[in-house]
């Protein structure tokens, strides 16, 4: 009996000493965490996509509290999350327009330069002989961008080109980063007219390689009432700050390179359902 009692008392005293020690230690060595970091972290989407250029969502929460990032920098959470973070931080924020990714290639009838038999990844294919595609600027079509999308907002269409489901796109820009040919651009959502070509080849060469290429005829440049589209290095480029998506250039484009996505959207939705 004495034996049990002795053990219990010893353990009890030991437990008490350790308990007090731990209690003191947790108080004196406590790491002071700003409570705002935790509450911001709860609001964030938690995808750790890295679109904000911070190491994950926790990193972003810290950066916001330290003033290194803006409350509206989380492109995934968009305005709702930004508003809630702004409430916690006690600041106002400027509402920014959502950017979505647009695939700037519409390759049709492009022949291959050679038989490619290697790794099924656009980045790996692009380093072998400058890419197997007849066009040096066009989409290689292995879907590296689709793999990179963490929000399932992209899929490979039946025509071999990646498609963006605009409702799901968060504008994180991961697809644009992985594309070895810089075909994907991040464009404000309200801009609906895009030049779907990246070819810098001269008109005649470009037309030979692809039916839908920009041939630098400058028709769009002449027609644009807002001075928003210009041909640079054999390619029409839209200045989205000036563009109003009026669609005048779409009408005159002889090769149907410039496309009005307002009309295109319904079609792409139907292909998803089909």
């Amino acid at each position: 009996m004495d034996f049990i009692l002795g053990a219990t008392i010893t353990l009890g005293i030991l437990g008490m000493i350790f308990g007090i020690g731990l209690a003191i230690a947790s108080d004196t060595f406590a790491v002071k965490v700003d409570p705002r970091i935790d509450s911001i972290n709860e609001i964030l989407p938690g995808a750790n996509c890295g679109a904000c250029n911070q190491p994950g969502c926790n990193g972003f929460a810290q950066a916001v509290v330290e003033g290194k990032a803006l409350v509206s920098d989380c492109s995934v959470g968009q305005a709702t999350v930004a508003q809630r973070i702004a409430n916690i931080m006690g600041v106002t924020f400027e509402k920014r327009e959502r950017s979505i990714s647009v695939v700037m290639c519409h390759a049709r009838g492009v022949k291959d330069k050679f038989t490619y038999d290697g790794i099924k990844d656009c980045r790996a294919a692009n380093i072998i002989g400058g890419g197997f595609l007849g066009c040096d600027y066009g989409c290689l079509g292995f879907g590296t961008c689709v793999e990179a999308c963490k929000f399932e907002a992209m899929y490979m269409g039946k025509d071999g080109l990646p498609k963006v489901i605009e409702d799901r796109c968060t504008g994180c820009g991961k697809c644009a980063v992985v594309c070895p040919r810089n075909i994907i651009s991040m464009v404000p959502e309200s801009k609906r007219v895009h030049v779907r070509c990246k070819s810098l080849d001269k008109g005649a060469v470009a037309r030979k390689t692809c039916q839908d290429s920009c041939i630098a005829c400058k028709q769009c440049e002449k027609k644009c009432p807002y001075d928003a589209i210009h041909v640079q290095n054999n390619l029409a480029v839209i200045d989205y700050n000036k563009c109003t998506s009026c669609g005048k250039c779409v009408e005159v484009c002889p090769n149907h390179t410039i496309i009005n996505f307002a009309r295109e959207k319904s079609r792409s939705m139907s292909t998803i359902l089909a």
Partner: peptide
């Protein structure tokens, strides 16, 4: 395709 992967 080891060399190709390493090149990549």
């Amino acid at each position: 395709p080891i060399v190709h992967l390493i090149k990549f």
